[in-house]
Amino acid sequence: MSAANFNNTNAAARPWFERLDRIDRRWIFLLMFLAVSGPILWIGVTGKTLPEAPTLAARAVFQEIDQLPARSLVLISIDFDPASAGELQPMATSLVRQCAAKNLRMVFIALWPLGNQVAQQTIQNVIRDDYPALKEGDDFVNMGYQAGNEAVMKLLLTDFAKAFPKDSRGEATSNIPMLKGVKMASNFPLLITVSAGYPGSKEWVQYVISACNEKMNFVTGCTGVSAPQLYPYFPQQIVGLLGAIKGAAEYESMVNASLAVDGVATAPKYLQAQRRMGPQLVAHLLMVGLIIVGNVIFFARKRRGAA
């Protein structure tokens, strides 16, 4: 809708619903901007977040990690890049935090080219900053990125070292102490992935989980776009599922509650997802409002047409 049309001379003569229907879409953009930025500023100033009631799928993720014995090996695949970090970084942060707090041994890999850098930042923000006693090579290791998507997964099924011959420090896989007993993917009792699309959670189910014959459990966090497609796998093939920022906020609140210390406030970096639920609320209400207004226009026009 061009500005020229909007300012048509006989615009005033049109009925209200016609004028509303022809509204410049930039006003809708402005509304969306205000709907998202308002709560961000309010939460940023007050520090208040909305309460979260974890759903079954998010609780399953927490419980699956929680029930693992200390020192268990977990394979964490960071399959996203900065483009989806708004949704997925809070999940990755909380997942790594729970694993570190549980003293699980974490092996990071990436099937997205930029996933290696995301993994590195997460390791820095959570492990190095808050769990400095954990030692690289013994308690966690970042194996970096490998090209090949499904073929890397296929290789992981039979030979971990062939799929990831070195870690991000340049150390050969065979020299890494915590990987001494690891031959293949099924040596990990749990696979955790945070994925933005292809290759991601779906491919992990198709190529690894199906082939591992229940030796390896799988929990995953994914974007809103891919979450609906993953529900058919839950809970048989995907034991726990975090869908979109809501899943992240639910899981984050559970991890925070489990690690809460009396009198000590949770570090703000571990409240990222819950903070984002504020703008989410207002923007969703706006979306509902826009759809209702759109339909009011539709029915008003229909009635006028029928008359």
Partner: peptide
């Protein structure tokens, strides 16, 4: 560069999805 450019490209869709919902989401 990569972070702001790619993530803003993705974020842009929030605006378009709102506009599309207003114009096309009709109970026909």
């Amino acid at each position: 560069m990569i972070t702001p450019l790619t993530s803003t490209m993705f974020a842009l869709l929030a605006f378009f999805v709102a506009s599309a919902a207003f114009r096309a989401f009709r109970a026909k």
